[in-house]
Design a protein around this nucleic acid. Structure first.
Lengths: 233, 233
DNA sequence: TCGCATCATGACCCGTCGGTCACCTTTTGA
DNA sequence: TCAAAAGGTGACCGACGGGTCATGATGCGA
């Protein structure tokens, strides 16, 4: 009455599924309310369990739930990154970067509230707390950076982008991505001078990252010469 | 026994000074602990007042203190922006942008914890709360964007950067600035492939914003031609 | 010196929420 | 069919912190 390895026992499978349901509920609540204002009561209610049951699955309580979410978030992000660049491996870097922005833009956009919450907690936990969760946060972030740095480094080797630190560049790309996403959030009601579709946003970011905004009519010491940019719409 | 206008009465002056002390203390505590984990008890203690006294100066309690801090933060930021660009009004845009990054980098860096806290609260309050503080946050952010958009628009008129939305560009510049600052925070312990001084950071950001990282060896439809970047150290 | 007004104070009140545990239901295996 | 194990539950507890207010101190004008 047991399948020891491979496919888990019904028990194990159901346990896993329940855990996942709880995590999904917690993600929603944390995203809506922020970590501190989210109550385990509400998480439990949304997952359709009693509060006590949460502790059967996450003995570490609220914080363990947070860490599990962080891990899951980075799982998704990393797999999105590698999938995107693998699929575009053979085309030129500009094109694959654009499609990367397009794919990830949607990813971040629909998780923007959660992302901000995680960011805040990463910071809060990052200093003045146990070193254990602190280190955990660092490792997770590192995973995403590393995943993105790989295709960047390859592009550098192919001479498609100039050589610099792939990890630093990876960081700046992620920063620009979620900066754009924040802007999109904030100006949803008000301002309109903003690329509205994911694809025009992706093109804007690609141009910004690869070409900058300079007209390059000034010669500066080591930057010999011109090349003008198209004026965007 | 009253100086009705101009210089305020001793009373008024002292009241103002006390308020400022309380704000300074609250800034410290909010930055260290985050808004939720900061206690008014600790704010009061650090300002060397009793907790009750806070309510004489901020009848709105914790939230009123938060809003006052947000306003003060943006006062500082805006005046820094205009000061920096006024002082560099006559030199070319690349140079003044670099000095802008250098000045503001320090500003953000020494307030990074506070900034993250404000960011989180802006988000939390930004949705699902009273519309009143929500609007307040929006207005404050708008002030900074507008202050920065002015010199950007001028540079566009002078043809030093390509035409696009000054406000969008202002946003992206601020985003890159504090993204860099976050990176600096995070990799303080660990990674080393990072511009360490404010001035090398400023140059990195200027190059990224104005020139991008592309080698521009590919011709894409509307971007005719080359111009290579110096390889940073 | 006296009375009044202003102001500082921290003990206290009270709502909230993370975490616990005694109890109940369901499943299992004989 | 039944007992034992496993699992689910929510009432309850205790800590915590925002906000209040009775009390006392201080200053000021008469």
């Amino acid at each position: 009455m047991e399948q020891p390895s491979e496919s888990l026992s019904r028990r194990e499978r159901e346990r896993k599924a329940r855990r996942a349901e709880m995590l999904a509920a917690a993600q929603e609540v944390f995203a809506e309310k922020g970590y501190n204002n989210a109550t385990l009561e509400e998480v439990a209610a949304r997952a359709e369990f009693g509060k006590g049951t949460l502790y059967n699955y996450f003995p570490g309580g609220k914080q363990e739930i947070l860490l599990a979410i962080v891990e899951h978030f980075h799982d998704e992000l990393c797999s999105l990154i590698t999938r995107t660049f693998d699929a575009n491996g053979s085309v030129d870097f500009r094109t694959s970067l654009t499609s990367f922005f397009e794919d990830t833009f949607a990813f971040f956009l629909e998780r923007s509230e959660l992302f901000l919450t995680l960011l805040q907690e990463a910071h809060r936990i990052g200093l003045s707390d146990d070193p254990e969760p602190r280190q955990f946060f660092g490792e997770q972030r590192e995973r995403a950076i590393r995943a993105l740095a790989i295709p960047l480094e390859e592009a550098m080797h192919r001479g498609e982008i100039r050589r610099s630190s792939p990890r630093l560049l990876a960081h700046m790309i992620l920063v620009n991505l979620n900066g754009a996403q924040m802007k999109a959030c904030m100006s949803r009601d008000t301002a309109t001078d903003f690329p509205s579709s994911a694809s025009s946003m992706a093109q804007f970011l690609t141009a910004l990252m690869l070409d900058g905004v300079g007209h390059r009519t000034h010669d500066t010491p080591s930057r010999p010469s011109p090349g003008r940019m198209a004026v965007s719409s």
